[in-house]
């Protein structure tokens, strides 16, 4: 890969994750449809399958999902430099908004229509989550075994709220290794 294309990838990674950092509201899972747009649909850095794997990895490793996604995608397409560029780009809006607007932010929230607008974001965040769930159901539940695992997991999580998702995911993963071998 030449120097020119490498620089181009850094620029694309920077812009993609700057947009994610600037336009994702509601945190965590709600950022996923936007990330999917950028990394799967628009730039085709990851396949649909890899995107599901990335979310699975994010559940297994510490830290915010968006950071995990930025680092993973950056690393895959641009190596260590790409990972740094994508991760920093995602954090940049948060840094700048607080730095430049911190004096106004608290007062800003007291304007009634700003509060109304933020209230209105909540059904939109729910819609984004439903869309993520839809992707998982369509692409992840592709066998009877997968459906059994998913339903068992759901019952388990609902019934025992304290079940640690990390251990549950690892256990299901190793079940998968054993079942599909």
């Amino acid at each position: 890969m030449g120097g020119g294309t490498q620089a181009m990838i850094y620029v694309q990674l920077f812009l993609a994750f700057l947009r994610v950092g600037l336009f994702s509201f509601g945190g965590g899972l709600a950022a996923l449809p936007l990330i999917e747009r950028e990394v799967v649909t628009h730039f085709a850095w990851l396949s649909h399958r890899e995107f599901l794997e990335l979310i699975t990895l994010s559940e297994l490793t510490p830290g915010p999902i968006a950071i995990n996604s930025a680092t993973f995608t950056g690393f895959k397409v641009g190596g260590m430099g790409g990972a740094v560029v994508a991760t920093c780009a995602f954090c940049l809006p948060s840094f700048l908004l607080v730095l430049l607007l911190s004096h106004f932010l608290s007062r800003f929230r007291e304007i009634p229509w700003v509060e109304w607008f933020l209230q209105g974001l909540r059904p939109a965040v729910l819609a984004l989550l439903v869309s993520v769930a839809y992707s998982f159901l369509v692409r992840g539940m592709n066998s009877v075994f997968a459906a059994v695992l998913g339903i068992t997991g759901l019952v388990l999580f609902v019934r025992f709220r304290k079940v640690n998702p990390v251990w549950a995911l690892l256990f299901a993963g190793f079940l998968g290794v054993w079942w599909y071998r």
Binding site: I55, T56, L137, A146, A147, G176
Partner: peptide, 17 residues
């Protein structure tokens, strides 16, 4: 296969959310 097994559980976590 590991992911094949873990992905349905992530789906369950997201449905829960």
């Amino acid at each position: 296969n590991f992911f094949q097994g873990a992905i349905p559980l992530v789906a369950a976590l997201i449905l829960l959310a």
